[in-house]
Amino acid sequence: MRSGNAPRDLISRTADITFVELPEADRCCGSAGIYNLVQPEMSMQILDHKMEHVKHTEAHVLLTSNPGCLLQMKLGAERENLSDRLKVMHVVDFLHERLQASSIK
């Protein structure tokens, strides 16, 4: 989608959050279109590597702007038993939730 830094800028401007950039955020999560279907073993190795970085952030929310990555990272959270403490969301859904919460106050 070549969105550049726009999602990061919006997230970092959101009140009451601490934005932590995922190490190697620019590296593939293992989904890459249908890569996870045609190369499932390698896809899971890439995902496992990505999830190691996610665990080290100790984040409560993991955001992505790519629908394929969203599904892949949700799978990663489940595989690593992180689903109870890590919410994987699309950036737009996260920002929508935050806007709704701030309008209620």
Rank of each mutant, 00 (worst) to 15 (best):
R2E: 11
R2I: 08
S3M: 14
G4N: 08
G4I: 12
N5W: 07
L10K: 09
L10H: 06
L10M: 14
I11R: 02
S12Y: 00
S12N: 07
S12L: 04
S12F: 00
S12I: 04
T14H: 02
T14C: 09
A15N: 08
I17L: 14
T18R: 12
F19C: 05
L22W: 01
P23L: 05
E24L: 08
E24P: 01
D26R: 11
C28T: 13
C28L: 07
C28N: 07
C28M: 10
G30R: 03
S31R: 02
A32S: 15
G33W: 10
I34P: 06
Y35C: 12
Y35V: 13
N36P: 05
L37E: 13
L37F: 15
V38E: 09
V38P: 02
Q39Y: 10
Q39T: 07
P40T: 14
E41A: 14
M42C: 06
M42E: 02
S43G: 08
M44H: 06
M44V: 12
Q45F: 06
Q45V: 03
I46P: 03
I46Q: 02
L47H: 02
D48Y: 01
D48G: 08
K50N: 01
K50L: 04
E52D: 07
E52Y: 00
E52N: 05
E52C: 02
H53L: 06
V54C: 01
V54I: 08
K55V: 13
K55W: 01
T57I: 08
E58R: 11
E58L: 12
A59L: 02
H60W: 03
H60G: 10
V61E: 03
L63N: 00
L63A: 01
L63W: 02
T64N: 00
T64S: 04
S65T: 12
S65R: 06
S65A: 15
S65I: 09
N66A: 10
N66R: 09
P67F: 13
G68A: 14
G68L: 11
G68Q: 08
L71M: 14
Q72Y: 07
Q72I: 10
Q72R: 10
Q72M: 14
M73V: 10
M73L: 15
A77F: 02
E78F: 07
E80F: 14
E80W: 12
E80D: 09
E80G: 05
N81S: 12
N81F: 08
L82R: 03
D84G: 09
R85Q: 14
R85P: 01
L86E: 03
L86Q: 04
L86A: 05
L86C: 11
L86I: 06
K87P: 00
M89G: 03
H90L: 15
H90N: 15
V91H: 07
V92E: 04
L95N: 02
H96K: 11
E97V: 08
R98L: 05
Q100D: 08
Q100V: 12
A101S: 09
A101T: 13
S102P: 00
S102C: 05
